[in-house]
């Protein structure tokens, strides 16, 4: 009985990959994840904004007020500091993770424009990253921008990144796309080695007392697996690239369902933040126990067994599913 899977060309012991989160900022924590059985690790994201703005900010404040007043020609002893500016800190972390861990390290790059930040993909590869996850969080707010134009941004960035590196690249997307199968196919055509569904965007909230928009962080729940579950089931037999499921993976049941829908890997963040890195080994135990009880020899055996193509009633993943739920609701009430 085994939990093996393949993702981005890597043979993984199991599909329980920690996705991008602050856990990878801490080497000790990363080591605990590996010890608990994580088969690979997606690092926290390096944001386009970080590359541009943090450096600019540091430069601005270190120089702010200098050379203005005779007694205080500067305020910081910055000349002796060798700053790990922009991606340096991140690249250093890749190196460290590669040095301390044996599992594949997937670096994560997050941005929305074609620009200098894309160059950092190559630096990540040089620093030792085994693969890249490209996370594009583009929020279209311009009324004259069409859906096709928005999608072009994704293809263009992906192509640009693929043109820089020779390591595999996974594309992580949000769920607000029309014609997802066609979009996924084009992403594959543009060179993606995997597609990760879906990015869980943190939605802003309004603080009624301060009348301010605030970021709000809510951890996912198992309910949320259903959206990726549906789309992985739909896409599984339409694309060849690896498919990763993310959002709401908390339990062995979640992993089983997503695997049956066709996921190659099932990413986790909220559960690990909530229960700690050792949660991976608990899920592994639960998975094996379930498989034993239900006489499955491997995850490969069940993978995609309930994809749209393989289920008895494919319409369950389509509009019919919606009608069915409504009818059941009416009958029950």
């Amino acid at each position: 009985m085994n939990l093996k899977t393949k993702y981005l060309g890597f043979e993984l012991d199991n599909p329980l990959v920690p996705s991008a989160s602050p856990l990878s900022k801490d080497i000790d924590m990363a080591k605990r994840l590996e010890d608990a059985g994580a088969p690979a690790l997606v690092m926290y994201s390096l944001f386009e904004e970080e590359i541009y703005h943090e450096d600019a900010e540091l430069d601005h404040y270190l120089a702010n007020g200098s050379d203005s007043f005779a007694e205080a020609l500067s305020y910081f002893p910055d000349e002796m500091h060798d700053f790990k500016a922009g991606p340096e800190e991140y690249l250093e972390q890749i190196r460290l993770l590669k040095e301390k861990l044996d599992i594949p390290i997937i670096a994560s790059l997050n941005g929305v424009s074609i620009g200098g930040w894309i160059e950092k993909a190559k630096l990540m590869e040089v620093a030792g990253a085994d693969a890249l996850e490209l996370n594009i969080y583009y929020l279209p707010t311009d009324p004259v921008q069409s859906g096709a134009e928005v999608k072009d941004i994704y293809f263009d960035i992906l192509k640009a990144v693929k043109g820089k590196v020779s390591i595999p690249v996974a594309m992580k997307i949000g769920n607000a796309f029309s014609a997802l199968p066609s979009f996924a196919k084009k992403i594959e055509d543009a060179g993606a080695d995997a597609l990760v569904l879906f990015n869980r965007f943190y939605q802003p909230d309004i603080n009624l007392e301060r009348l301010e928009v605030e970021p709000s962080l809510a951890l996912s729940t198992s309910d949320e697996i259903r959206l990726p579950l549906r789309w992985i089931a739909v896409l599984r037999n339409q694309v060849k690239m690896s498919l990763g499921a993310t959002s709401g993976v908390h339990t062995a049941e979640d992993v089983l369902k997503l695997t049956m829908a066709g996921a190659d890997v099932t990413f986790m963040t909220s559960a690990l933040l909530k229960y700690g890195p050792e949660h991976i080994s608990r899920i592994k135990t639960d998975l094996l126990q379930w498989m034993e009880e239900n006489e499955y020899a491997s995850l490969d055996q069940m993978r995609a067994s309930m994809s749209m193509k393989n289920v008895t009633d494919p319409s369950a993943f389509m509009r019919a599913n919606y009608i069915k739920i409504l009818r059941e609701y009416q009958q029950n009430n």
Binding site: A56, L58, E88
Partner: peptide, 12 residues
Amino acid sequence: TYGSKGEEIVAK
């Protein structure tokens, strides 16, 4: 002057 503060600052 700016090398230690990031490639982007230099590029700018």
